[in-house]
């Protein structure tokens, strides 16, 4: 087992009664920023619990940051900063007291925890608001506060569960920028658990896609991009239907653009050379007037991988909404 791996788990399974939440999950991830994506019920939360040492797997073994996920759970949590998705606040406390309490709970000496709380609150931009009661924080500031609580003991790795959940677009951008700066400045490893693929694309260099308790994809984002289908926006003059049929017969997936004639979005395999568009056009008496490459984004790829491409509009709408489920 390599000590340099951030996460090294093998054949990890976990069931809740008769429901198998995770099935034989094997992951070997290098330090860096990793996106953990999946639909509701995909097993993300269970995997998080196991990575945090809060839940013992039924089968399998592994290490996180070199610590055994079954036997060294306390040391493990001392190295990880966890930012929960839920509000998870303690009533009546002020911001600085909340972050100090987080430091105390990690086992920091109280004086250090208090001093450090002031530092990290300043760092996340809550220096002016640190003496406010938690009930008075806005959603965006509450997320920053939770990030400060995760950072207080200077962990090696951050585990961020839906950090932009419930934020308005401006708040989301600000939060992403803060995390981006943090990663750039400290070089900390980050596991970003989210269903917002835009966040993963922006922050992560690696993505793990979970579906129904299994890992269906684990690869660097750049590598995934390279295996993505090439996508083009195509417009032409001449016969419409025969040209669409010819494209489909040659392995392209043709998608209408708002029902407009002689226009389509075409997904073609990577082996496809653009010259073939022109060859097909010539053989069908068509003149291509537009050929614009488009990159398939991770959300489309995720839907394709999980076989839910047909639900794409609904999922896209969900991603646009500020409140994720």
């Amino acid at each position: 087992m390599s000590r340099s791996l951030l996460i090294d788990i093998r054949n990890v399974s976990r069931s809740y009664g008769r429901v198998r939440a995770l099935r034989d999950v094997t992951l070997a991830l290098e330090p860096g920023t990793i996106g953990l994506v999946g639909n509701n019920g995909a097993g993300k939360s269970t995997l998080l619990k196991i990575l945090l040492g809060l839940l013992r797997p039924d089968a399998g073994e592994g290490t996180v940051l070199g610590y055994d996920i079954c036997r060294s759970t306390s040391q493990l949590r001392g190295r990880i900063g966890y930012m929960a998705e839920a509000a998870a606040t303690v009533p009546v406390l002020r911001g600085v007291e909340f972050v100090t309490l987080a430091g105390d709970l990690y086992g920091m000496p109280h004086r250090d925890a208090r001093r450090r709380a002031h530092e990290v609150l300043n760092y996340v931009g809550l220096g002016e608001l640190r003496y406010r009661r938690l009930e008075e924080y806005s959603a965006g500031n509450l997320q920053r506060l939770k990030l400060a609580a995760a950072l207080v003991h200077d962990p090696q790795m951050l585990l961020l569960d839906e950090p932009t959940n419930g934020l308005d677009p401006a708040g989301r951008v600000a939060m992403l920028r803060l995390i981006e700066d943090l990663i750039a400045e400290t070089g900390k490893s980050v596991i970003l658990c989210t269903h917002l693929l835009g966040d993963v694309e922006r922050l992560c260099h690696q993505v793990v896609v979970l579906d129904r308790g299994t890992v269906i994809c684990s690869a660097p984002v750049s590598q995934l991009r390279s295996v993505l289908d090439h996508r083009y926006e195509l417009a032409w003059q001449g016969p419409d239907e025969p040209f669409r049929r010819a494209l489909a017969q040659n392995g392209a997936r043709v998608e209408a653009v708002d029902g407009a004639p002689r226009m389509a979005k075409v997904d073609v395999p990577r082996s496809w050379n653009t010259i073939r568009f022109f060859e097909l056009a010539r053989s069908h008496g068509v003149v291509i007037t537009r050929l614009k490459p488009e990159e398939e984004d991770l959300s489309r790829m995720f839907l394709r991988l999980t076989g839910r491409l047909a639900d794409a509009p609904a999922v896209a709408a969900e991603e646009d909404a500020p409140h994720g489920s």
């Binding site: 809060l54 949590r77 929960a84």
Partner: peptide, 13 residues
């Protein structure tokens, strides 16, 4: 209010 995850996800059990 979800404070229990806040406590138990730190080093304490």
């Amino acid at each position: 209010g979800g404070a229990l995850p806040f406590y138990l996800s730190r080093r304490i059990d």
